[in-house]
Amino acid sequence: MRKSALLAAVLFLLVALVPLAGDAYWLRLGTTMLMYGVIAMAWNFIGGLAGYPSFASAAFFGLGAYAGAVAQKLGVPMGLAWTLAGALSLAFAALLGLALLRLRGHYFAIASLVVAEVLRELVNSATDLTGGGMGLNLPVPHDATVASQSEFFFYAMLALAAITFAAMLWATHSKLGFGLRCIQQNESAADMLGVNTTLYKVAAFMLSGAFAGAAGAIYASWVHYIEPPDVFDVLYSVKAIVMVLLGGAGSVFGPLFGAAIFLSLEELVWRNYLQVHTGVLGLMIVLLVLFLPKGVFSLRLPWRKGKP
């Protein structure tokens, strides 16, 4: 655990140097990568550790984005708005988890997939609060330059990624993560051994929700404008899974590496083929599932074994 923490600290410090390059393109790319990393790590709590095929990432991300945006619109300071958005997603995940985590397999997957659709419709119809289908503009602080702004959001996303990573590292090497691994391998046996499976699964779902929601809130402030189909996009749920699969499910660094690899592919391949954007993503998923279902690093790396 100490080794992983040290390695991560070095990694995050290196990433923190990116703004020195001073290039707006690299800054945008870095922020996106960190955001993807947070979404992937957040999914890893429920999908990687507990082994539940959650498609709820988009729901949490969108909920956080709208919660943060609405709070800011109502005059809540930005940092507090992000925290509130994370807390709301956490509470929402708790309630949702109590209901949905009784389902298994395909049923859980579908139910979690549907949540984003329902939220999107609700946000669409709550026009007074959310602007509905017209989208929502966020206040832009006028005392800052564009460059300093993008630097600010980069560091905000970096801080969130670091916190998410710390939480995941802690969870993996604690009783919580151990219990979740038991659940992932054999839930009824875990129950028999005294694991309060409901509590553990809901806890994992809450962590998942909180971090994905916070990422959504920062994203909303960063891009200044959100609309329902953008932030409740089911592709967020799919990308989270793909990134973790790429990097290796259940590993501590997997989601981050997966996010980096995924974004590189996205940038290298898709920028040139905008029209077949989703098709190429689909092809990538198919190839990944067929040929590398255990991730790019299919070797058993030393840090992938979380000992009690």
């Binding site: 151990f178 054999n186 046996a189 028999m192 005294g194 694991v195 000992k307 009690p308």
Partner: peptide
């Protein structure tokens, strides 16, 4: 029999000690 297949033998027993036997993690 229902072991946790991907865990070590020791981890299997430790899980039981921890969750039902109230032994501290670690």
């Amino acid at each position: 029999v229902q072991p946790f297949p991907e865990m070590t033998v020791a981890e299997n027993v430790a899980a039981a000690a921890m969750f039902a036997g109230a032994v501290r993690y670690g």
